[in-house]
Design a binder for these strands. Structure first.
Length: 213
DNA sequence: CACCAGGCAAGTA
DNA sequence: TACTTGCATGGT
């Protein structure tokens, strides 16, 4: 077994043993996950929850109804999530794609070839690598590893990546050295985020009690 | 008061 | 290609 595979597996085992299962993605439906993936861009999940709650209260957590809503109305509802004007625009770009090309049916998305679907998602304005992969993994259950800012910092800190490594390089590191499992990728990414929140805030790890030491 | 959160696109050189 | 900047609320 390659050394990288061993290290990545060991890190996972430590994190899982310390934190336990993370129960991601926290949402009631695939559509709610996709909306959340866009709303949480560079934003705390706590603020996203407020925005999602606003949409649920108005019974607007539905692709067709949400797309009919004027952009400025949508913006005011998602205000707590921050960047509300640009996110309203991004949500609408995604909704247009989802409704027009897939009749707002997550199962039709799920039937697509993963690589092709990833390209289609990336073509939507406002959907970048992490958002696309979050949708693929969590909403559509495709075995794709999600990389985020915490992942980059943690790997760099443990000598598994350079600071300059790009998204695909880090994603490949995981996908080429681990079993391609939806369950594993789901839990691993969530655990890295958990570790980052708890121990690497402000990029100054409190490694005294860090489970990776 | 400062800092930053489960990024991304657009502009510049 | 590689860097910089705008976007914005709410918690610590």
């Amino acid at each position: 077994m390659p050394v990288l595979a061993k290290r990545l597996t060991r890190i996972y085992q430590k994190l899982y043993g310390f934190f336990g299962p993370q129960a991601w993605w926290p949402a009631d439906s695939p559509f709610e996950m996709m909306v959340g993936a866009i709303l949480t861009q560079n934003t705390s999940w706590r603020n996203v929850e407020k925005a999602i709650r606003n949409l649920k209260e108005k019974n607007l957590l539905d692709a067709q109804r949400l797309y009919r809503l004027p952009q400025d109305k949508l913006a005011s509802l998602i205000r707590p999530a921050g960047y509300y004007n640009i996110k309203a625009k991004r949500l609408r770009a995604f909704l247009e794609f989802f409704c027009r090309d897939y009749q707002s049916d997550p199962n039709k998305l799920r039937r697509q070839d993963t690589a092709s679907l990833r390209r289609q998602l990336l073509a939507v304005n406002g959907v970048g690598p992490e958002t696309a992969d979050s949708i693929l993994l969590y909403a559509l259950e495709k075995p794709v590893f999600v990389v985020d800012g915490y992942t980059q910092r943690i790997l760099a800190r443990h000598g598994l990546a350079k600071g300059a490594d790009d998204y695909l390089k880090l994603q490949n590191l995981f996908m080429q050295n681990l079993k391609n499992s939806v369950k594993l990728f789901n839990e691993y990414h969530a655990l890295l985020v958990k570790l980052g929140k708890e121990f690497c805030l402000k990029n100054k790890p409190k490694c005294r009690t860090c489970p990776l030491r």
